[in-house]
Nucleic acid binder design. Sequence first.
RNA 1: GGGCAGGUGGCAGAGCGGUCAAUUGCAUCAGACUGUAAAUCUGACGCCCAAGCGGCUACGGGGGUUCGAAUCCCUCCCUGCCCA
Length: 378
Amino acid sequence: MIELKILKKSKRSAARLGILKTPHGEVETPALVPVATRAVVKTLTTDEVRRAGYSLLIANTFHLHFRPGEAVVKKAGGLHKFMNWKGGLMTDSAGFQVFSLGFGRDFGTGKIALEKSDRKITVNEKPRGIKIMEDGVVFRSPVDGREVFLGPKESIKIQEALGADIIFAFDECTSPLADYEYTKTSLLKTHRWAEICLKSQKSRQALYGIVQGGKFKDLRKESARRIAGLDFPGFGIGGEFGDDKKKMVEMVRWVVEELPEKKPRHLLGIGSPKDIRPIIEAGVDAFDCTIPTHYARHGTAFVSSGKLDLGKTRFLKEQKALDKNCRCEVCQTYSRSYLSHLIRAQEITGLRLLTFHNLFFFNQLVESARKDIKKGKI
RNA sequence: GGGCAGGUGGCAGAGCGGUCAAUUGCAUCAGACUGUAAAUCUGACGCCCAAGCGGCUACGGGGGUUCGAAUCCCUCCCUGCCCA
């Protein structure tokens, strides 16, 4: 099991400094959790991920179920051994794919609505790519196209076979376009699924319940109270987060206020550099995000001044490091010019170096936030 | 010197009488990306512009046939391969 030891609570905000103890080591919180969807932080070895400053990763149940299949992972001795990761591990429940491959794909939206849209998803509306049913969801395998049913029971069973330290309840992550009725109805399902997850769990893994409720305050509050009322050792805060940053933080606050203080809170899928401080101030202990790794593979390096698109020809002329204040191996070793060349030439090492830098850079941001909690600045 | 094959937008390479300012790929430029569908995707890409089924200049140069030519004919220039 896990335990969150709270070292310090901020007087200025809901932020707290802590240590999350897992069966595979301790994690300083607040913590960013790199995403290892298919049992790998894309392009890096686990040793490199560790060197970038991380001790907790999140893998994905949906993707690992289809390839290689949880039986393969189990036979290999579990996810830790399979991927050679000695730190803490989480697995996402596949709930996000209900959204991502459903309405998310239909409307091209993510968890945050980047443009205000009048399009609303109403209560009886159905996504095209998947079928959402009372006790689960029918998907098509991204590997071979065959139809597969996944629900709370199936998700827990798979996650038990995978063997991460922390697992998540199977939920429906609603779209920013979902209206009140849709969200409310979906919430009933997510709550019912949460209970099924708890009941069907046989392992001693830490099962986090997930709070949903979209952008609606009463639904978020209700969801937080319902989920907090169940016997979960930790909580995920999921779903969509409105259409601007202020709203997002406000929504996290609504939820955090309803959650028990002693248990860890994990914000699912949020973590752009600009989000990091605000969500920590809102009381989040951990959060995972694909941004550092994903953007790296699209040629973007994050630096103190913002982000650099190394694919642009102008960087070929710059001999300096990505970020002069970054202490990472990449910034100590390579120039923007060289990295730009690698990215432009589509050399895979370029993707590796940017991934490493971005992860290291993000960790520096989180680390400085932790220091500021300690100093009483946050 | 003879024979054959070619010369198309920054490059490669389609088109072979009208719907061609010209398929496609690359390059270039711009944009997107938050529990990974993602080493991905979108858009622009001759010039002008009051932006439109708009004007202008364009498929090696010149000339011709035709209502109409990148596409057919003549000629010149150039390139590759083969034979002397």
